[in-house]
């Protein structure tokens, strides 16, 4: 079974190679009578028998008409399905336990004609895989080609961090009469990475990268929000008026201005070693929980536009800031342990 599956996948890879967007054509479209198509042909056979036995030309005509409809709708099905143009959209960040929303744009540019009818989207299930790994569940999405909003999204539950093993996307359609099933298995670039689930914790920044001796540097603790009110100070000329604590003035305590916790702009390191795991967990769970905490800290620090580095033992990322840095840190966390 698995050998056949593998051969099939190989053949599919050759026939429909991975691409960012597809205009369906004879190479990528598979077409075969549906179950109803078979029933329909059976009906034609029955009508033929009845028509012959009753020597009824009208019944025979009906039978031949239905057969012709069957033939002609092959073309119609193909033509309709070949109108489909799919382009992969941008995926948002996804963390363990989240649903990955995999967006696809169906005929987004107005150049091509819209396909009609109901179109089913789902991840191609590889049966063996589902049996072993029950957690990888996916559900399909049915859209109406004449009434839908772009993009079409497929949901995939992500139970594990790291690269998502994205299976092919199956698209199928039965338009116009349901006699044929047109389908295709499209393969989109597999570059989605599931980040560890962030676990809220205090931010622990080591002042500098730790050397092997494990000498702990000065770590600085900091409360969560930095725009929070911290203390009062006597007013100095030039300070913004809206910082003045008018209530205090009204109480006759003179001009005092509110001071807010300002950003700590010092550079620090996040390190795997110094992240405390929750107690009572197995080795593997400990690691996951540590990574989760780091993930949370990376996200928080990036939000505050802080400069920080990441030390995961083997991989170290030099201190920096910005979206790109955040991305690379999260990727490093996600792929930690699998080389």
């Amino acid at each position: 079974m698995s050998i056949i599956q593998k051969q099939l996948n190989k053949w599919l890879d050759k026939r429909i190679p991975t691409a960012n967007q597809y205009q369906l054509n004879h190479k990528s479209i598979f077409i075969f009578p549906s179950k109803f198509g078979a029933l329909f042909i059976g009906l034609c056979g029955l009508l033929f028998l009845l028509g012959t036995n009753y020597q009824n030309n009208l019944m025979l005509l009906l039978c031949y008409f239905l057969v012709s409809i069957f033939l002609v709708s092959l073309l119609a099905s193909y033509i309709n399905f070949a109108k489909i143009h799919l382009q992969m959209g941008k995926t948002s960040e996804v963390f363990v336990g989240d649903n990955l929303h995999f967006p696809m744009w169906l005929n987004a540019d107005q150049k091509t004609l819209q396909p009609n009818g109901l179109i089913n989207f789902k991840f191609k299930s590889e049966k063996i895989k589902i049996n072993i790994d029950k957690s990888l569940s996916s559900n399909g999405n049915q859209i109406d080609g004449n009434n839908f909003t772009n993009p079409v999204t497929l949901n995939l539950l992500c139970p594990k961090r790291g690269k998502v093993n994205l299976s092919r996307v199956s698209v199928e359609c039965f338009y116009p009469l349901g006699l044929y099933r047109c389908w295709t298995h499209l393969s989109f670039p597999n570059n989605i990475i599931v980040f560890p689930k962030p676990i809220p914790c205090d931010i622990t920044l080591a002042e500098k990268s730790l050397n092997e001796s494990g000498e702990s540097g000065k770590t600085c603790q900091q409360s969560l929000g930095q725009d929070d009110f911290s203390h009062l100070k006597s007013y100095q000329l030039g300070e913004p008026l809206n910082h003045v604590a008018w209530k205090q003035l009204a109480k006759g305590r003179g001009m005092v201005s509110k001071q807010f916790a300002s950003e700590d702009s010092q550079i620090g390191w996040l390190s795997l070693k110094h992240t405390a795991a929750s107690v009572g967990l197995s080795q593997a769970e400990m690691l996951e929980s540590k990574l989760g905490k780091l993930c949370y800290q990376v996200a928080e620090l990036s939000r505050k536009n802080r400069v920080f580095g990441l030390d995961l033992g083997k991989t170290k990322i030099a201190p920096s800031s910005g979206m790109e840095h955040r991305q690379s840190c999260l990727t490093a966390l996600a792929t930690y342990g699998d080389d």
Partner: peptide
Amino acid sequence: LNYILALVTHSRESN
């Protein structure tokens, strides 16, 4: 209008 829509959709689709 198609031109405008094409521009807008491109901004949504493109990476």
